[in-house]
Amino acid sequence: MTNQFKYAAIECDNVSKHYISERALDHLDINIKTGERLLVIGPNGSGKSTLINVIGGLIRPTKGIIRIHGVDIHKSSPEHRKTIGILTHRPFLYEDFTGRENLTFFGKLFNVPNVSYRIEEIADLFTIGHLLDRRVSLLSHGNRKRLGMARTIIHDPNVILLDEPDSGLDAHSLDELGQTLGQTLQSKTIVLTSHNVDWALPLVTDVLQLSTRQEALKTSIREYHSLHELRKS
């Protein structure tokens, strides 16, 4: 854990990801400090989801290195993954299991002490206690997303990566998620993508703008606002 403060929480060193016919990320260099909350915005195809997957170690970049707390994610021990919580467009939940069974399974694999207590705690956070004993295949998209959020932070990770956590959520759930991200998870390093900029901006400290040409511009929230004002006038 000493590494946590010595190094940037997330470090992308010259990262490129090329698919056969397109390039999703191109020579991306960013540093994300511990406690920073970064909103990644950009049009479809600008590589937002790829960025989340690459940082989370689910996709190996074509070139470049990702370091989490100074350790190369693709060379680190499996233990190192406990520092990361990731929510992709798939919530990683078994359809034929109930929410509780899913959370128990992942809780065990992440070696969470006292799993059943932790599940209650986290269910309160997202007010999904009443959904825990229903099969995932019977849940609505929004509720799956909330359950997926619960799965993402069940092991209390320091680095949280969220790919459009707000999609499919109603206004009430959005508020709830905003509160969780803004208050409960205040000390965590968070990277999230969203199309709903108005909802997400108040929650973050920094903004990364990606373009369809894979240009990246990282600014603090204040700089982003002043740029925005400038563009308006």
């Binding site: 499996p78 233990e79 993954r81 990731i86 990683f92 939940l93 359809e95 034929d96």
Partner: peptide, 12 residues
């Protein structure tokens, strides 16, 4: 059901 990434992301 979850895609293989669901297990790969775990510390296993």
């Amino acid at each position: 059901q979850i895609g293989f990434h669901g297990l790969i992301m775990c510390p296993v």
